[in-house]
Amino acid sequence: MTAERQAHSGHFEEALPDVLMRIVSELHDVAYLIERIEPQLSDTKGETHLTEADRMMVLQGIDLAVQKTRGLAEFIDTVTSTIPAEWLVDVTTAVNLIKLADMQRSLGHGSLRRGHSQPIDESAGAFEAF
Rank of each mutant, 00 (worst) to 15 (best):
I76G: 01
G125T: 03
V89R: 02
D54N: 14
G46N: 05
I76A: 03
I83Y: 03
S25A: 10
R113H: 09
E74N: 11
H49W: 11
G125F: 03
F12Q: 14
L16Q: 05
Q67R: 15
E4F: 11
I23D: 02
V95E: 06
L59Y: 06
L97G: 13
D18P: 01
K45L: 13
Q67V: 08
A94N: 05
T92Q: 09
H28M: 06
A124P: 01
E52I: 09
V58D: 03
V19Q: 04
I62A: 11
I76Y: 05
E38G: 14
S25M: 02
E74Q: 07
A7V: 07
E35G: 15
T2I: 06
S123N: 06
G46Q: 03
I98W: 04
Q60F: 02
V79H: 02
D90K: 03
H109Y: 15
A73K: 05
H116V: 08
L16T: 06
T78K: 07
D18R: 12
L50K: 02
G71F: 05
V91K: 04
E13T: 08
E52H: 12
P39L: 06
A124G: 07
V91Q: 06
D77P: 00
G115I: 02
R5H: 04
E14H: 10
P119K: 11
F130P: 00
G46R: 04
I62L: 15
P17G: 05
L72A: 10
E14R: 14
E122S: 15
Q6H: 12
R36Q: 15
A53P: 00
F130D: 10
D43G: 06
A85V: 10
L16V: 12
E128G: 01
T92K: 08
P17M: 05
L27M: 10
L16H: 08
I62T: 07
A3H: 13
P119S: 10
S81Q: 15
A94L: 11
T80P: 02
G115K: 06
A85F: 08
E74P: 00
Y32K: 05
